[in-house]
Amino acid sequence: MRSGVAEFVRRVTARNRLPLDYSVASLRVVDRVVDGLRSATTDSRSVSAELFWLGAYTGEVLVRRAGAVWVDFDAEQRKLFGQPTGVRMPDGRIWNPIGKVAKRFEMGREESVQRMYLLLHGRGRAAVA
C-alpha cells in the first residue's frame, strides 16, 4: 500500500497542489476533497479509484502518525468492511480508513476522517506527538 499511496500523492499534489504531507492536519484536506467529489457526482462508482486512494492515504497517515500497520483483511473482515485491507493499531484494534472515506462520500459531513483520527483509540504513544 505504501508505494501505491506515495504514487497517488505524487500524482495529485503535482497536478492540484494539494497539501498531502501525511500530517494529521492533511486529513482535513481529504475530507474536503471527498466533499468536492460528492458535489460533482452522486455515483460513487465513477470516483471509486479516487475514494480508494484517499482512504489508503488516510490509512498511511495512521501508519505514520499513530503507529498502525497495514493488514490484509481475512474473508470475514472483507465481508464486514467491504474492503481488502485496513490497519491494525498498536492495541490490536482493526480500522477501515478506506471504508471511512467511502462513508464520507455517502453521508457527507457527519462522517470525517480527521475526526476519526482525533477520536481514535489505540494510538501508539510515540506516534501521537
Rank of each mutant, 00 (worst) to 15 (best):
V71Q: 13
P97K: 00
R78P: 10
P90D: 07
P97H: 02
A75Q: 08
V87N: 01
D74G: 08
V71M: 08
Q77S: 09
R88T: 07
G99N: 06
V69E: 15
K100D: 10
N96D: 15
G82A: 12
G99S: 14
D72H: 07
F73A: 06
W95D: 01
G92D: 02
A75Y: 08
G82M: 14
F73I: 06
D91Q: 03
D91N: 12
I98Q: 02
R93K: 13
Q77P: 00
F73N: 07
V101F: 04
V69W: 14
V101S: 02
I94R: 03
K100I: 03
V71E: 15
P97Y: 01
P97A: 01
N96C: 06
R78F: 11
G99W: 09
W95L: 10
V71K: 10
F81E: 14
P90S: 06
K100Q: 13
Q83Y: 11
N96P: 09
R78W: 07
D74W: 06
A75E: 15
V87C: 05
G86E: 10
M89K: 13
G86Q: 11
I98S: 00
V101T: 09
A68K: 07
R78G: 01
A68F: 14
K100P: 03
G92T: 06
A68P: 15
I98E: 05
A68W: 14
R78T: 04
V101D: 05
K79L: 11
P90I: 03
A75C: 02
P90K: 09
V101H: 10
M89N: 14
T85D: 04
D91G: 00
G86R: 07
P84M: 04
A75G: 11
A75K: 08
F81R: 07
Q77L: 05
Q77Y: 05
R78M: 13
W70D: 10
D72N: 13
T85L: 13
R78A: 13
G92V: 02
L80K: 04
A75R: 12
W70N: 05
I98H: 04
G82Q: 15
P90W: 12
G86D: 11
R78C: 12
A68Y: 12
I94N: 08
R88D: 02
Q77E: 13
I94M: 10
W70Q: 06
R78Q: 15
R88G: 02
P90E: 08
A68T: 09
V101N: 11
P97V: 00
I94G: 12
V69Q: 15
A68N: 10
I98Y: 02
T85G: 08
E76A: 14
W95S: 02
G86L: 10
P84Y: 03
G92S: 04
A68V: 10
F81I: 00
A75D: 15
Q83N: 14
K100L: 11
N96I: 04
V71W: 08
W70I: 04
E76L: 09
E76P: 02
E76V: 03
P90L: 11
V87A: 00
